[in-house]
Design a protein around this nucleic acid. Structure first.
Lengths: 180, 180, 180, 180
DNA sequence: TATGAATGAGCTTTCATTCAT
DNA sequence: CATGAATGAAAGCTCATTCAT
């Protein structure tokens, strides 16, 4: 059995590899969830196992890299006065629907501090928006995150194809409960 | 040195083994979740791995057997006129809190038809109860199951110790959303 | 690539496998030392990786199994009145020369309590023998074990072929130092 | 986002890099032992892996470079008439205690000829000193090296914290055996 | 029919060594 | 010449599933 060894494309491949890893991770996390095998991600990215570990020392680093941009975009959009709370929620729910691993950002289960920090960014974003919005007396950012956690864990359980539809139905229920 | 092998107690042991497996599975699913190793269940039951497979060809059959009794009890209690919808819900939520594997009954993800049928029994139970209860206009059994699914998936994600507390908080939110 | 899967020889192979694993471990530990890859031992024994782990849950269990008989023999022989301290020492040095992993028994570095207990058996064996032997004032079991540790670690470092010769030379030096 | 790559400082950096590698190797060998990852040494030195390989084609070359200075110092001090054999021994034992990798000099196990040559320098140093010292009839440089080898291998096996203490105890035993 | 051992695939992680730039 | 990323071969460990007895 002669397996042709992949050519060492040299350091210039670094940026490309990193991007490929993030792209692959995005796909794999989206479809298979946060616990997907890292080896699959490396394989999909067409990159050696070792390179994955070089770029991302652990699973959390990879999730972080995958979602960092999304979170920043979210914050930027949320900061604009014309953006309503509902707009922001819609964005977050889009994320949840697109990638079930996003749950790890909403409700981190690993102890990782960076993920917790990211979660806090999201919660704070909601907190700020809530102060500028007329909502029911019960509305608060903690319950909002709780509701999103439930939505996320549910979506993670079901087929990709039905996620959007279920998300709409579930969110309308949660929305009512949140007193928004 | 050869460890003495447990005696083959023959066919007469079948019923006993089956019961032991169910009991063990109940424990193991409760503590280690639905994905617990089957080998652990067999070991806990004091039964060979092969016997587990003979009695329960797959994981779903085991879940089914584990919860069959619980569902029957639930139905019986729900059928009594003195039992309110809230009583039934409290029972179900207790199940969810006690064993996160119960999610497979509320929201089956394995393709297994028997689990789907069981899910339908639960939903029908709620449907019957709802017709005899004064609730908001939006209340319906489908959303009720959806809400319980979300609660269940959330509970499955968190530490055992905090489940009860989170269940209370989350259910109060969901309840409001359900228009009960 | 079609790798013929090894036939499942069934439970009757258990005793044989266990013996094969111990034999393989004895060889591999002897030549490559205590840190030898367990996968190599499984391969040499012609046994699946999982079987190795079933029989011996960790490295220490394997070492223990490998040396248990040797230690018992040692003790038995030492208990006979006609056996001199020098006889016992010669036996132990033979072990050290034959298998460099024996160091883990003389001077356990893993925390494993069973190995520590085995070490104690050896030391006690020497302690008993020393009380019945006329030796110099400085002779004591602790230093004896220390000396054997040094001998063992040295032997572990050198080629198999020269072990016997070096053992003789080193022991004569240590012997003088021990005041025997 | 591309991490800025350290500038290639060109050939003029060669000497500096070499020195940094030796210093790093000294530290790393001392703390993590002779088998420490080379990548760690390069990182500590702030130097590329490739440069490490350019300067030191293999592990032996690195050990050689690390201890070259120490050996020279040792020889110089030993050559002074006022230095006793015990002084030299104390120096060597200090080395062994400080860096367990020094064993590769006392008792080279890699085939490397340069290490063997270095070993011979140490042995010759002792030989010369022995001729000017009044010692027991059995004292000879070969056994001296053997004793030091044993001490070194033992120290390499134990916790850093207990090395000094064990070294004292073991050396007193060996010293007696050496007839010094 | 029960038993429990056997099997190996699959995942994680670490490092020595190579090589494009 | 330096750089540091790329590569994949180990090695450890776990479990679902099969199968001889």
């Amino acid at each position: 059995v002669i397996a042709t060894r992949r050519a060492n494309r040299g350091p210039s491949a670094a940026a490309h590899n990193r991007a490929a890893l993030i792209a692959a991770a995005r796909d794999v996390f989206a479809s298979r969830g946060f616990d997907a095998p890292l080896s699959l991600i490396a394989r999909r990215a067409g990159v050696g196992q070792g390179s994955l570990y070089r770029h991302f020392g652990d699973r959390a680093s990879l999730v972080l890299a995958v979602f960092e941009d999304n979170i920043s975009d979210l914050e930027a959009r949320s900061a604009e006065p014309s953006t309503t709370l509902d707009d922001v929620l819609a964005d977050v729910i889009d994320q949840l629907t697109a990638s079930v691993a996003f749950i790890e950002v909403i409700n981190p289960v690993l102890g990782d501090q960076r993920l917790v920090a990211m979660r806090d960014r999201v919660q704070n974003m909601f907190a700020r928006k809530l102060t500028h919005t007329t909502v029911g007396a019960n509305a608060n950012p903690e319950d909002l995150m709780l509701a999103l956690s439930m939505l996320a864990t549910l979506l993670a359980r079901i087929e990709v194809d039905s996620r959007r539809e279920v998300a709409v139905r579930a969110w309308s229920l949660l929305r009512r409960g949140l007193d928004l």
